[in-house]
Design a protein around this nucleic acid. Structure first.
Lengths: 340, 340
DNA sequence: TAAATATGCTAAAACGTTTTAGTTAGATTT
DNA sequence: AAATCTAACTAAAACGTTTTAGCATATTTA
């Protein structure tokens, strides 16, 4: 890049002072270092007119910060995560940071590699959607004092900050709604995982079913998180034909979409043959022949909170900031969960 | 970050050689610098056992490269652009690069600011979805020898490399298909913009209409690119009620989704009342009551190509690489464009 | 046999910052 | 009058690499 970058040295030479002085002034430490007011002002003016912008690589090498934060999601092309990415981007920009992103595909080894790469690029901190099995490597990060915040998913009994949904409440809302509508044999489709967000969602459902005296109708199907389509199909087949389910709750947006595909293919009508509650808004839901009832996450709040916490951690690395936020879900009611 | 990193110096000390030698060997330049084979092997072994990984920041400071590329799209939360982002990410990672992203919201001033920020972060090059009016600032970039590749959209009569769809061919395919199906009064909804991709799409449609002798049915409606919903609604209203359109082609995914919302709201049936051809796959299209015919872009090819070109430019900055690729669209035929 | 060349390695500079440890000149205190 | 302090500044080190220039020693060539 023939950018002809203006360096501290150039400003210093043009004013006949040292680069030290220029650096100090431009870092706003003039008072602290007792730099004269006139010369400080001259430096500021010169930097402005010469259009100086610091070389962040050099600054970072010296031990400073890059104003870069890393975002690891499972898949940036998943609309749910790209929506989060956008909010993270906006908030980070507001605070003077830039976002580097990458996708783990729910694989531990990818997560590991991405963390390494992002750290080697010098990111000041990380926002991570952790995948199954990643607790240990993320704890290591945290113990190494790398500012880290989890988003969307959390680890229970851990000191790592997170910003996610009140997952238990989400399925509690959905299940109670279906029960109120008169459904009884309510099934659930989630992922095969040890991750807490899914376990909490399952628990919210199970507890609500028990509370209503529907223990015998508790059916939890768990599918592989990678490429769920086929397993969702057979799960629905079993639930409908063998278990006589009259409603089904899908635990993520991907599962909901996969489920709708399968139900369409099987020619099962919603809500006549089976009622449906989905997760996270999707353009599809409103335009489906039967608008889908879904659990809405306050994404704006969740993502903004994650960035705020991360940057607070970055700026106060000596403090032990621990921020654990569960945000409240909302149930958006469509036609897919109405008794006919 | 108390990472306790292993440095070149540590390896050098442990073997009693210079850091120079270690650096040379680990960069695979042992032959070129005539380093003895035994010592070279020892260095490699030591690096392995000591788990050395280079500090990229230092390397970059010295070499002026960050292995970071900037991606500016209009909105990362738009599924079309997040799909591109994912492919860019994958290809960049394969080539040893990491992606920094940001969203311009179709605003020139944002694009300008983002370019500045990304350059100040030291990105080695930029992949940009240019917005209306951005030609000049991007040409400046190019003239400053900043490796730059446009994606999705291009500037005609310009030396700036790009990778995008054969837009003319896309609407030609769509229009010809509708004509073959027996539609005549085929309308088009696009954006109010001077950007070439939209102009080409309009031209592909107009030429096809003329060729079929349907000049009199050419109706092009242009809506505001920011928040198109309301204008799409009134455009459709006019086209159907005043112009008696029997088919409509939407020029982007956002327009298609907005159009389907409006048609649903207006209780217009597809394809009975009006046939529809959309742009870019969307989960919604297959699950709509009438599966939507759409123009499919070879996203994998387009995005991979953009990254390849960019990195070629970065690596051979002395060469004047100019790569202009139009990829071929495909028409995926659903029920929404069938004559009933 | 002297000069040229090849071999195998290293010292030091360079990248652009930030920070540490001074220095100088003048003002104040003892 | 000597010692101390303060204000305003700077030289140099440091961050961890890569690269340039160069130094011995050994080998080949003239």
């Amino acid at each position: 890049m023939a950018q002809n970058k203006v360096l501290l040295k150039d400003i210093a030479n043009s004013l006949g002072v040292s680069t030290t002085l220029v650096s100090i002034v431009l870092n706003g430490k003039a008072k602290q270092y007792r730099i004269g007011e006139e010369i400080a002002q001259k430096v500021i003016d010169a930097a402005m007119t010469m259009n100086y912008s610091p070389n962040l690589i050099a600054r970072n090498l010296r031990g400073g910060k890059t104003q870069l934060i890393g975002l690891i999601v499972t898949d940036i092309s998943n609309p749910f995560y790209s929506a989060i990415a956008r909010i993270v981007e906006n908030r980070a920009n507001e605070l003077g940071y830039t976002v580097v992103f990458s996708s783990s595909d729910e694989e531990l080894k990818n997560t590991k590699k991405l963390i390494e790469i992002l750290l080697s690029k010098g990111v000041d901190g990380l926002i991570i959607v952790p995948c199954d099995g990643s607790e240990e490597i993320i704890r290591e990060l945290h113990e190494n004092n790398t500012p880290t915040v989890l988003i969307d998913r959390n680890f229970p009994n851990s000191d790592i900050s997170f910003s996610c949904l009140n997952n238990y409440r989400a399925t509690e809302l959905a299940t109670q709604h279906l029960i109120e509508e008169g459904f009884e044999n309510i099934a659930l489709i989630g992922y095969k995982t040890r991750m807490n967000h899914i376990l909490d969602r399952i628990k919210g459902y199970e507890d609500s079913m028990k509370k209503a005296g529907f223990e015998k109708y508790i059916h939890v199907k768990k599918v592989n998180i990678l490429n769920p389509q086929a397993e969702v199909h057979s799960a629905l087949d079993t639930l409908i034909k063998k278990k006589n389910a009259d409603a089904v709750i899908f635990l993520t947006n991907m599962l909901t979409v996969a489920g709708l595909y399968s139900l369409n293919e099987m020619n099962i009508k919603i809500p006549n043959d089976i009622a449906v509650v989905g997760f996270n808004r999707n353009d599809l839901f409103n335009l489906f022949y039967s608008p889908i009832t879904f659990i809405k996450q306050p994404l704006e709040i969740i993502a903004t909170q994650a960035v705020n916490t991360l940057i607070e951690k970055i700026k106060n690395s000596e403090l032990e900031i621990k921020s654990m936020v569960f945000s409240e879900p909302q149930l958006i009611i469509g036609a897919s969960s109405k008794k006919v």
